[in-house]
């Protein structure tokens, strides 16, 4: 069900994005930062799902909060003539890499565990045990 929601959401979003008007270049910098923040939240969410401590409230607030905060920081940086958005990018992209690394590790662990399990089963096989275990 969640997967279906994701797919439908992506399709609708793509349609909206394709037909949306172009935003001026001045604001595209802010939007880019917001996108990076949002992607970071998404990867964080996936990671938390895999670690089984996913909370929809934290995810939603993180998604929008990070985006808005990064935009505000970028504006502040522009007012102060400091490239704060660079710091934001470093932090978000770094966290994205961390999250991706833990996701990767999770799947590698699962895959190798499965293989070990299969090997263990093959060594002690009888048809009946196999079927029962599978069930």
């Amino acid at each position: 069900m969640v997967f279906i929601a994701i797919i439908i959401g992506c399709i609708i979003g793509a349609i909206i994005g394709i037909y949306a008007p172009i935003i001026p270049y001045t604001y595209s910098g802010y939007l880019a930062i917001a996108i990076i923040a949002a992607l970071d939240s998404v990867f964080g969410g996936i990671n938390s799902v895999l670690k089984k401590n996913f909370d929809i409230k934290i995810f939603v607030t993180g998604f929008f909060g990070n985006a808005i905060l990064s935009i505000l920081l970028t504006i502040l940086g522009q007012k102060l003539n400091v490239d704060i958005y660079l710091a934001a990018i470093v932090v978000f992209v770094g966290r994205m890499f961390n999250n991706l690394a833990s996701i990767r590790r999770y799947y590698i662990d699962r895959f190798s565990n499965k293989n070990e399990k299969v090997e263990a089963e093959e060594t002690v096989t009888t048809d009946t045990v196999d079927t029962s275990k599978k069930q």
Binding site: G9, C10, G13, A14, G17, L31, I35, A38, V42, F63
Partner: peptide, 11 residues
């Protein structure tokens, strides 16, 4: 969230 994200990315 997917809608918002994909739309903004495409924009």
């Amino acid at each position: 969230i997917c809608i918002v994200l994909v739309a903004t990315i495409l924009m």
